[in-house]
Amino acid sequence: MKRFGDFTAVAGIDVDVLPGEAFGFLGPNGAGKSSTMRMIGCISPPSGGELRILGMDPVRDGPAIRGRLGVCPQLDNLDPDLTVRENLTTYARYFGVPRGAARERAAELLDFVQLTERADSKVEPLSGGMKRRLTIARALVNEPDIVLLDEPTTGLDPQARHLVWERLFRLKQQGVTLVLTTHYMDEAEQLCDRLVVMDGGRIVAEGSPRALIERHSTREVVELRFAADSQEAFAGKLDGLGERIEVLPDRVLLYVADGDAALAQVEARGLTPAAVLVRRSSLEDVFLHLTGRTLVD
């Protein structure tokens, strides 16, 4: 639990992250994800409840725990005036890595995040994707047991995102525990073995991406677009189709087990939507169902 004065950022969450798994905290802005990450990172003491990281108490053993964590923050905090390599070597020394070993480690990590060619250039002119990869490399200088990633791919272009995902997946294969926050559902589906959906400082759902979809959504979704401003009128005629009908300003969503069968029934009722899309249910459907469609900020 985390309180700031009268404001409760994290009201109460109960999770266990197992060694070697990739665990995700999902939620809209203000759900308490970052506060939770700061508590796990041992830089924000919990206001209540019990928190153990690697079996230790974050308030008493902060530095010892942080020595075994790698942190990739939401906002890059690399040193813009140092070179790419120096950012890694200076950071490695905070973990007691001797100078020579730090240089070796930096070279390996630059190779891992594909920045070897930029090793001696300054950080300032690097692209957003390169900076993010360097931040991830920096989080690995101490060979951490757990890597905390706060929105690791926010703001990156698709190529950069896929490269980051691929590297993170490789880390997971090597047995590193990943704890990440994201509000990209495809990211969660790609990376997380297990995740929780947070809203208003609480957990509203927990499970593997597949289990969450099974529990909170149907197998398929049919998206129907009718002429403008007539979604409501048509929706009335769809009664009884599927498990749930959601009417949006621009389209109607039918949550069904079998999309093609449902579509056939729609047509059998003489309805002719302007556009139709039958797709698999995604984590995004679960997320929007659980946390609502209204804007948070």
């Binding site: 200076t90 905070y94 973990f95």
Partner: peptide, 27 residues
Amino acid sequence: MSVTQRARPGLPRVPAVAVLAYHLTGY
């Protein structure tokens, strides 16, 4: 490249020295 199978580095003996080294690198 192996991320996990290496001897784990300890904590720095005098952490402030590592911080000083960082500032000198920039200087």
